[in-house]
Design a protein around this nucleic acid. Structure first.
Lengths: 114, 114
DNA sequence: ATAAAACATCATTACATACTGATATGATGA
DNA sequence: TCATCATATCAGTATGTAATGATGTTTTAT
């Protein structure tokens, strides 16, 4: 039976992983591993532009990876589920072994040297 | 300290997750969860074009997520590490809880109805 | 009420990359 | 060797989406 006979689950999963597949979003998620942060704090921690952070946060929130809570005029963001952190940790471990391959994977984009 | 002070780890991780963040690659990885397959078998199972499958397999192989082994004129592919399957399983679990959010996330691309 | 701060949204631009079809490479058997 | 099968590579195209700058919205303080 074709896997694509039921494409929805795959599409959903791909969409979930896409939340993790961008450096900026990953920076945000990593920053939130140590606890909740306001948008401004995330901007400072990641060094990204505010509008960019807001965009990514909106995406991460829509997809359920982070939660927002209004606190006065600040909005505090946090990872929405332990398993988000678990996925990050598991990826860390996997990366420790396959890092060489990933690093040398220049098929699509080359990591910028500097 | 800026997280971006050491961007390499983040970039690598993003690249790793990008391996999982495309429906086609995910279909391939899912197909390989049940054991090794030849390229032709993957083509049949996923319903993707052969050149497309080969491209994605090259990417997945470069990044260390799958292993290739030549067998006669066939090439057999397999997941390269248990943790690849673990990541898929963990994502399944997470998805079970946040699926609603992911499904409704139309920020970027809308899942095609049919 | 007004101003300022914190955050969100929008349009635009630029780039990355998935897909296709054609072709090339390599292995096997006649 | 030659033909065929299995897989890989390539160029071209189209689309998705990250980043930016400008603007909108909400909250708080004066």
């Amino acid at each position: 039976m074709l896997i694509t006979a039921n494409p929805k689950a795959i599409d959903l999963q791909a969409k979930l992983f896409r939340g993790f597949s961008d450096s900026s979003r990953l920076s945000i998620l990593e920053a939130l591993r140590d606890g909740p942060l306001t948008v401004g704090e995330i901007v400072q921690t990641t060094g990204l532009m505010q509008s960019n952070v807001s965009n990514h946060l909106g995406c991460l929130r829509d997809c359920g990876l982070v939660q927002a809570e209004q606190q006065g005029r600040y909005v505090s963001y946090a990872l929405s589920d332990k398993r988000v952190a678990e996925l990050l940790r598991l990826a860390d471990e996997l990366l420790a072994d396959v890092a060489k391959g990933v690093y040398e994977c220049t098929r699509y984009n080359v990591p910028e040297e500097q």
